[in-house]
Design a protein around this nucleic acid. Structure first.
Lengths: 144, 144
DNA sequence: CTAGATTACTGCGTAACGCAGCGACTGTGT
DNA sequence: ACACAGTCGCTGCGTTACGCAGTAATCTAG
């Protein structure tokens, strides 16, 4: 049973990644760019260096990625008043909402599935999904 | 509650994709290449054209991707006896096992989590994960 | 005040990709 | 039997994202 769950996870990974790649292509950006938007949307504004670490890019590549995002109107460059070397990248809220909206259709499908689970069962799902995300993050940190 | 589950899914996606990208880098290949290996490992041998569709690549790019995989020893090119235009790409089983082994560490973490769920709860997880994978595949097909 | 660390950014080479076009082959219709 | 349209994998070619190395500006510690 446990192995079956692990296999289900592995099987799910493929379409998830493909779907995200698809959205990135639709938006005319790299998956890396989309990833950076996630980081900004979920964790708030960040410096280019911080962003580079989060999306696993070198400083230079991050700089160019930010340039792409700025030109496309997804983020803004704001000078950091405390450290004049730094720049704070903050996401454009409208753009972020627009990007998030691309997941509406898929979320509706998931919502329909979730409707077949009662409260206790959804609690089980939530507990596992949260744990799984943390484990994956741990694994990434360990291998970094 | 349902919304929380959806958020947990969204949150999980990020590290999952990053982790896979990490493995691809470790293996000295593109994420696309790794994706092709998955397809071959899960669905068996396929032609370059079929592979190109599955990983969302053009015919030409797939041809070069296959060339990379062949040179790295992950797959073999086998001429199709029924149609001499075609070539069947079949994965090298040892290489596939070696790549699969890279997930062992993460799977162990998941296994530890799953140990805290009883049979009935794991059945719930399995049911949802399977459904989620199918929904995501549906969404991809619809937007293709 | 100065020396070293840190930050974002800029050439430059590499490589993966899409597009367009190629020869080889299939199969269908006449 | 044969021509011709369709399909297959593959190959130039231009574009672009990336890593690496180096730079100027700025901060910080002694």
């Amino acid at each position: 049973m446990t192995d079956e769950v692990l296999r289900a996870i592995a099987r799910w990974q493929i379409p998830v990644i493909q779907f995200n790649g698809m959205l990135a292509e639709r938006l005319g950006m790299t998956w890396t760019d989309l990833q950076a938007l996630y980081v900004l949307a979920n964790s708030g504004p960040a410096s280019p260096g911080e962003l580079a670490r989060r999306v696993n890019l070198t400083s230079g590549s991050a700089s160019r990625m930010i340039e792409r995002l700025v030109r496309a109107g997804f983020v803004r460059r704001v000078p950091d008043p405390h450290d004049r070397r730094k720049v704070v990248i903050e996401p454009d809220q409208d753009a972020v909402r627009r990007v998030g909206g691309l997941y509406d259709s898929l979320n509706e499908r998931h919502r329909a599935d979730l409707a077949t689970f009662d409260e206790a069962e959804q609690a089980v799902l939530l507990r596992f999904l949260t744990a799984a995300a943390e484990r994956t993050e741990e694994e990434i940190r360990q291998r970094a």
